[in-house]
Design a protein around this nucleic acid. Sequence first.
DNA 1: CAATTATTCAATAAAGTTATTGAATATATT
DNA 2: AATATATTCAATAACTTTATTGAATAATTG
Lengths: 221, 221
Amino acid sequence: MEKREFKEKVYSELASLTKALAHPFRLQIIDLLAQGSRSVEEIAAQVDISIANASQHLQVMKGANLVSIQKEGHYVHYRLADERVYTVWQSLRELGIDRLAQIERTLKDFREEKNSFQSLSIDQLLEKISEEGVVILDVRPEKEFKAGHIPQALSVPMEKLAQKIADLPAGKEVVVYCRGPFCVFADEAVGLLTGQGIRAIRLEEGFPDWKSRNLPFQTIS
Amino acid sequence: MEKREFKEKVYSELASLTKALAHPFRLQIIDLLAQGSRSVEEIAAQVDISIANASQHLQVMKGANLVSIQKEGHYVHYRLADERVYTVWQSLRELGIDRLAQIERTLKDFREEKNSFQSLSIDQLLEKISEEGVVILDVRPEKEFKAGHIPQALSVPMEKLAQKIADLPAGKEVVVYCRGPFCVFADEAVGLLTGQGIRAIRLEEGFPDWKSRNLPFQTIS
DNA sequence: CAATTATTCAATAAAGTTATTGAATATATT
DNA sequence: AATATATTCAATAACTTTATTGAATAATTG
């Protein structure tokens, strides 16, 4: 094999892999599948695209070995093929959040609108846990909480939050988390809580990031 | 801002960033710029494409904030805009090498052809250094060696290797490294050395990977 | 200031990607 | 066996990306 041919093969394959990531919907799908496997229907609903379109994007990702499938009845469940798919997405995300002024501004604008001005990193949360008593709130759908959550977190899915505010331990600071840095549930929750005079702050990252750092987590079966 | 609008903005920006990576030549350019800054001319020569084409690809990368420029006379020197650009490439590479059968096979075929059957990881090299005495050979061009190399490594650019074999400390095992896992110099060197009866093995990763692990390195000014 | 050199720009044609349809497939239920 | 359901397939049109030209720009040298 020629040197040139070798390079062409290797870099082309890796560029194809990269292309298979490079679409807004496909990145959203990765964020979703990081919560667990999902059917085409569920994916289409969450990303808010047609089923045929979702299926097409999933084919692209499957072709690049980013996701794998498991058939069950007439459902096809898609999952991330490898933990490192999420690792790649994490490093892309970090680079973008820090270096693309556009993204930083969009995040800031959106959060200010929700009165979610600050955020906490996982490291800062770990410190807070060991020092003070904080209430940790998981505002993802119950299914995702059951599949895995930060130890001691309370499950209060976003749509139930308003009616459950009264039940929260009084006087304590609340840290809210959801799926990841682009998940809007946490910002909405912080907005709602601070509106009620409760000190609340969002966790910058989400549960998949907690898990990928090999921190302990709880599940409910 | 609407939830949907927010998601669209953020994921689209990140997809654009990903697209700016997703071309075989552009990935090669990242590997090259990880060695230090280079002019358009040098980049075009190394990647083996026309200058206009190289310039065009560099514009795409600059537009996505992956690279930055410094003008000097009528030269434009391009460099990686952020260390994390290389981090993203590393994680993509790892995912691909491990999971794309096609890449694994290409690597294996090429290396077998060069009689470079095995390779050593950085961790394995670190062990070897502390235990036995090994000779570490840097077969990149001298300019790259000067810009930074593994401590104690000997600089023997590929084109000078044949005539310098006699000067190598006899009886010791030789570990050869170059730019990264897809750099072919190391494989060619291993082929040449084993052909002369010298025990040689390539380092899987390259100097940028050594550096990105914050291991100590030497420079020559 | 004319000539040289490195890089970028602009136009173009070819190739690749995408969303939208509606039909096809394959499994499960009645 | 017929019907219903989830997913995939195939065709198409709109759009984007790419390599190749040759011209334009901008800094340096003679």
